[in-house]
Amino acid sequence: VTVHVDGVEYDFDNPEEALKFAKKVAEDKNGTYEVHGNQIRVT
């Protein structure tokens, strides 16, 4: 699973970890996250 944040890609073997990371980053920057299959984009 790849999490995209501001043009940087973070790869996770564990989808739950990826989702947790995306949620935290989105909260920290008052943004949102979208899941597209095995890609998660934080905006």
Rank of each mutant, 00 (worst) to 15 (best):
residue 6 D to N: 13
residue 17 E to K: 06
residue 37 G to C: 12
residue 20 K to N: 12
residue 41 R to Q: 11
residue 14 N to Q: 06
residue 23 K to G: 04
residue 16 E to T: 09
residue 4 H to Y: 14
residue 12 F to D: 00
residue 42 V to N: 01
residue 6 D to G: 08
residue 30 N to F: 08
residue 28 D to Y: 12
residue 31 G to P: 01
residue 27 E to W: 12
residue 15 P to K: 13
residue 16 E to Q: 10
residue 23 K to Q: 13
residue 24 K to Q: 13
residue 13 D to T: 11
residue 27 E to P: 02
residue 1 V to Q: 04
residue 41 R to G: 03
residue 11 D to I: 15
residue 17 E to M: 08
residue 43 T to W: 15
residue 3 V to K: 01
residue 25 V to W: 11
residue 3 V to A: 02
residue 13 D to N: 10
residue 20 K to T: 11
residue 29 K to W: 15
residue 17 E to T: 08
residue 12 F to I: 02
residue 7 G to R: 04
residue 38 N to F: 06
residue 28 D to L: 13
residue 33 Y to T: 04
residue 41 R to S: 10
residue 25 V to D: 02
residue 14 N to L: 07
residue 10 Y to W: 08
residue 25 V to M: 14
residue 37 G to Y: 05
residue 37 G to K: 05
residue 18 A to N: 00
residue 32 T to Y: 13
residue 43 T to P: 04
residue 9 E to N: 10
residue 3 V to P: 01
residue 31 G to R: 07
residue 1 V to R: 05
residue 21 F to D: 00
residue 38 N to V: 05
residue 9 E to Y: 11
residue 1 V to W: 15
residue 22 A to F: 02
residue 4 H to Q: 08
residue 7 G to K: 04
residue 33 Y to G: 01
residue 27 E to I: 11
residue 2 T to Y: 07
residue 41 R to I: 15
residue 11 D to L: 15
residue 8 V to D: 07
residue 40 I to T: 02
residue 40 I to G: 01
residue 33 Y to D: 01
residue 22 A to I: 03
residue 39 Q to S: 11
residue 40 I to K: 01
residue 8 V to I: 13
residue 43 T to M: 14
residue 38 N to D: 08
residue 21 F to Y: 07
residue 42 V to Y: 02
residue 32 T to W: 14
residue 8 V to K: 12
residue 23 K to W: 05
residue 42 V to I: 12
residue 18 A to L: 01
residue 43 T to Y: 15
residue 25 V to K: 09
residue 14 N to V: 06
residue 28 D to F: 12
residue 5 V to N: 03
residue 43 T to D: 08
residue 5 V to H: 05
residue 23 K to L: 06
residue 39 Q to I: 15
residue 23 K to T: 07
residue 22 A to D: 00
residue 37 G to S: 05
residue 3 V to S: 00
residue 15 P to V: 15
residue 23 K to F: 05
residue 30 N to E: 07
residue 25 V to E: 08
residue 33 Y to V: 13
residue 7 G to P: 02
residue 42 V to A: 02
residue 26 A to C: 14
residue 33 Y to E: 01
residue 29 K to H: 14
residue 14 N to C: 10
residue 36 H to D: 13
residue 28 D to Q: 13
residue 15 P to L: 15
residue 35 V to A: 05
residue 7 G to F: 05
residue 2 T to Q: 07
residue 24 K to D: 06
residue 8 V to F: 11
residue 30 N to L: 07
residue 11 D to E: 14
residue 9 E to T: 14
residue 30 N to D: 08
residue 8 V to M: 12
residue 21 F to C: 04
residue 12 F to L: 02
residue 34 E to M: 09
residue 31 G to Q: 05
residue 29 K to N: 13
residue 31 G to W: 11
residue 9 E to S: 14
residue 33 Y to N: 01
residue 22 A to E: 00
residue 35 V to I: 13
residue 24 K to W: 10
residue 40 I to R: 01
residue 4 H to K: 07
residue 6 D to C: 12
residue 8 V to G: 05
residue 43 T to I: 15
residue 14 N to K: 07
residue 40 I to M: 03
residue 40 I to Y: 04
residue 32 T to R: 12
residue 20 K to F: 10
residue 20 K to D: 11
residue 33 Y to A: 03
residue 7 G to L: 04
residue 2 T to A: 05
residue 28 D to H: 10
residue 37 G to W: 04
residue 3 V to T: 01
residue 33 Y to S: 02
residue 21 F to L: 02
residue 26 A to N: 02
residue 9 E to A: 14
residue 36 H to A: 10
residue 28 D to V: 10
residue 33 Y to H: 03
residue 16 E to G: 07
residue 22 A to M: 02
residue 34 E to V: 13
residue 10 Y to E: 02
residue 32 T to P: 02
residue 40 I to N: 01
residue 6 D to K: 04
